[in-house]
């Protein structure tokens, strides 16, 4: 069986789906506390229905969309992706969701839109972690338009075969860009804004020398404080080598051709 797996994966270690228990109890979601075990506990009872997403900026018609209006009519897909955290651990998560480009096409951005920005809910009453200023709230992330239109980019609405996300994983709507570090995966999205200028993003604002706008998984560019060459897959003992673009280079490398990835980290 080992040989068979070697043949199938070209010698790379196999990607086994991370146990659901681990993916739902080990979360970086500072809105619900900075310890990884906290979000599951502190998000208990977080209600994400009804949910409204404000669509703003360079779009044909800026307006609020109900969750159903925004994603309800788009075909749901199941996508199992590797997730590599900037802290050098990783998981394999079976997401359920809609392609981001389908959502974008639905809200009709103007040709002048070059970037799309996503904002997490700001509501310290429901998100107790926001009562301390550990990050500049609300959490914001953004993609270049061509990145956002890439077929791998997903807006997750569920995981592990379920059609809703647990609150600690970013219910009800969460970005998944598997070739980028996990922090790009902005959770509990309430605003989508199209713009012609590169938006500020939360971790980049908080610590620009450590977290860049692109945040593409790159084993050759270390975080200033730790190496990014290897990672520990949750549930495994030995570290494995981190792959360029988290193993999605064939699909996404062309988005960055000609760019100096050491500067654009």
């Amino acid at each position: 069986a080992a040989l068979e797996a070697m043949a199938r994966t070209g010698g790379a270690q196999e990607d086994k789906v991370t146990p659901e228990e681990d993916a739902t109890s080990y979360n970086n979601f500072y809105e619900f506390g900075t310890d990884k075990e906290e979000p599951k506990v502190l998000s208990r009872g977080f209600v994400s229905t009804p949910w409204t997403v404000q669509v703003e900026g360079l779009v044909k018609k800026p307006r609020p969309y109900s969750y159903d209006e925004l994603v309800g009519k788009i075909a749901v897909q199941d996508r199992t992706y590797r997730m590599r955290c900037v802290e050098a651990w990783s998981m394999v998560i079976p997401w359920r969701g809609v392609q981001l480009r389908d959502v974008i096409n639905r809200v009709e951005p103007l040709p002048s839109a070059k970037f799309v920005e996503f904002t997490t809910l700001f509501d310290p009453k429901r998100m107790p972690g926001q009562r301390s200023a550990v990050l500049p709230w609300p959490y914001k992330e953004a993609l270049r338009m061509d990145e956002a239109m890439h077929p791998l980019a997903l807006l997750a609405t569920g995981m592990y075969g379920k059609s809703t996300l647990p609150p600690q994983n970013g219910a009800p709507l969460r970005l998944v860009t598997p070739w980028k570090y996990g922090f790009k995966g902005v959770k509990s999205i309430v605003k989508i804004r199209f713009t012609d200028r590169m938006p500020n993003t939360t971790w980049n604002d908080a610590n620009p020398s450590e977290y860049g706008f692109y945040a593409n998984v790159n084993p050759t560019v270390d975080h200033p404080r730790w190496s990014q060459a290897k990672e520990r897959r949750i549930g495994e003992f030995l570290k494995r080598n981190t792959l360029m673009f988290n193993g999605y280079a064939d699909q996404v490398a062309s988005l960055y051709s000609g760019m100096d990835l050491r500067r654009n980290y």
């Binding site: 270390d222 404080r225 730790w226 190496s227 290897k230 003992f237 030995l238 570290k239």
Partner: peptide
């Protein structure tokens, strides 16, 4: 032992390159 499993090459790099 647990974190690097005697990967001395990585450990040496880690100690020399990463200030913390």
């Amino acid at each position: 032992v647990l974190d690097w499993f005697f990967d001395w090459q990585e450990i040496t790099k880690d100690i020399l390159k990463h200030l913390y």
